[in-house]
Nucleic acid binder design. Structure first.
Lengths: 113, 113
DNA sequence: TATATTTGTAAGCAAATACTTACACAATGG
DNA sequence: CCATTGTGTAAGTATTTGCTTACAAATATA
């Protein structure tokens, strides 16, 4: 569980998505979260670590408990990317025009390697 | 490169996100896509396979070329999930109320394992 | 103070991922 | 028909991932 730490990789795991859904409703401490899953407590702890490291979750220590708060705005990064794609997509006015562009590109060469 | 095939795992890889961005602008055949990356042609082919298998890309055969078309609506699944999370989040009226709910939950027990 | 609770983290491991090179094969074009 | 082009796929490999068990440490409580 090393290296890459971005939001996309964070939400790729179904367990982590469930954790996000859970703490979206209400901040919870680690054991309370782990109670909702079959995986061991350390496994959940590691998932929380991933979420924390990419800024999706913030820990608020309270005595010996650590409450996990979802930083919902971090998810905006994802929707922004999707909207960006959709914007480009819409720029190709309709599929017929799109088709014509392809015919044009067929006449171009691409040499690689 | 096996097993899990969902949209979240598909967009977790940065190269695949770039591919999606590319073909959002215009459908391209595989070699044209591969020209945009340092990775080998088979590597890109495998990425395309992942994208196809989760419904993000549709292949349109044209002679010996295979045009990759982005199925943009498939990305809606992601934004829907994010919006769902945000909805729950908004349900917790403000952070003070959220804080009080946590204090309550502290008094509940959870026993696991 | 002794004990229980809440959590982090290391070590070990099986599976998944992402690449590469090599080879196969169908469609095109001379 | 033969060489070229566009692409799929297998085999091999180094990393990354996700999980488990075991142990450490800090806070709370009887």
């Amino acid at each position: 569980m090393e290296k890459r730490r971005d939001i996309y990789q964070a939400i790729a795991d179904p367990t982590r998505r469930e954790i996000i859904s859970l703490i979206a409703r209400q901040s919870m401490n680690l054991n309370a979260i782990a109670d909702n899953f079959d995986a061991s407590r350390p496994a959940i702890s590691q998932h929380i670590k991933v979420l924390t490291e990419c800024g999706l979750v913030m820990i608020r220590q309270q005595g010996r408990e650590r409450y996990c708060e979802l930083k919902i705005d971090k998810l905006k990064e994802v929707t922004t990317w999707v909207e960006e794609c959709r914007k480009y997509w819409n720029a190709t006015i309709d599929s017929m025009e799109n088709y014509l562009q392809e015919l044009q590109s067929k006449n171009k060469k691409h040499g690689k390697r």
